[in-house]
Simulated scan of single mutants.
Amino acid sequence: MALLSTLIDTFNDGIIAPEWGNSYGGALETGGRARLPCVAGQYSGYQTAKDWTLAGSSAYVQLPLAAAVSGATVEAQTVFNIIQATAGTTIAININTVANTIRFENNVGYTDGSAVSLTYSAATHAWLRIRESGGTLFWDTSTDGSSWTNRRSITTPAWVTSSVNAVAAEMYSYRNNGSSNYAEFDNFNTAASSVAVYLMSASLTADSTQTAALTPSKVLGAALDASGSLDASATQAAVLGASLTAQSRLSAQTDAAVRDDLTTHIGEPHSGWTVTGPWI
């Protein structure tokens, strides 16, 4: 079908995708995760058909929750598995919370006498990866799904390179006894839950010019994730001071009578007047 690295699932739609068509034991998709019931004496798993290829490829997954001990006396297992046609021949990362171990296994007949075993840490081993490259098989873990630490590597088993379109990815849980609980996996071959990408557009003109007045500013600082937001209140501008001068002109005109429109009437003099010629 395709390289295992092309199988991607965020488990966010609440429906087991058709690629996991061989799932079993009450497996379900809920809360944005693949949930596997861990019930005494019962296996539960997400599993693809055996039509994928690991050679030259990889598969990784987040493990938010491993099945807790809850009274189990031998094993409460949470397992990330690559399987093929021969039963018991698998490549696995096996977490057993009863023993508090994480094992990196190359199983034949369900066992691996050379498995690498470490103390399990939910934080240190939060992401699990199995990959093949250039004739070497690798088991890796990560705290964040970005920076990886190699835990084991071996020469690639022959069946990995010969099993083109013939392997399956599997995640399962199992306990020998104790109270039922569950394991949860998330983000198969993707870090979608923690990374958001936003595409925006802008129209630019090669020879355009933008001018702006000088504006004093202060960067206050903000910590935002990819999908966060920053709200700002309206900006208030204050005039700190101003000194203005203005010149004004006041013009005034005396209200003197205009004397160029007087009419002089000349007539016969009356008594009491002192006159001179031409009336003398």
Score class of each variant (00 low, 15 high):
3 L>I: 01
4 L>R: 01
4 L>T: 09
7 L>S: 03
8 I>A: 05
15 I>Q: 07
15 I>Y: 05
18 P>N: 13
24 Y>H: 12
25 G>L: 13
35 R>C: 11
41 G>Q: 09
44 S>D: 01
46 Y>N: 09
51 D>Y: 10
51 D>S: 15
52 W>K: 14
54 L>Y: 06
54 L>P: 02
57 S>I: 04
58 S>R: 03
66 A>H: 09
67 A>R: 02
71 G>K: 07
72 A>N: 05
78 T>V: 00
85 A>C: 03
87 A>T: 15
87 A>E: 14
89 T>M: 08
91 I>T: 02
98 V>I: 08
102 I>Q: 05
123 A>F: 13
129 R>W: 02
131 R>V: 01
131 R>Q: 14
137 L>P: 08
139 W>Q: 04
141 T>S: 10
143 T>S: 13
148 W>C: 00
150 N>A: 07
153 S>V: 04
154 I>Q: 11
155 T>Q: 08
156 T>Q: 11
163 S>P: 05
165 N>R: 12
170 E>R: 12
175 R>N: 03
178 G>D: 05
180 S>T: 15
182 Y>G: 07
182 Y>I: 07
190 T>L: 11
194 S>H: 06
211 T>V: 11
214 L>T: 08
220 L>E: 14
223 A>F: 12
224 L>W: 07
226 A>N: 08
230 L>P: 00
234 A>L: 07
235 T>M: 02
242 A>K: 13
245 T>W: 08
246 A>C: 12
247 Q>F: 04
259 R>S: 00
262 L>Q: 08
267 G>F: 09
268 E>V: 15
271 S>G: 09
278 P>W: 08
279 W>M: 03
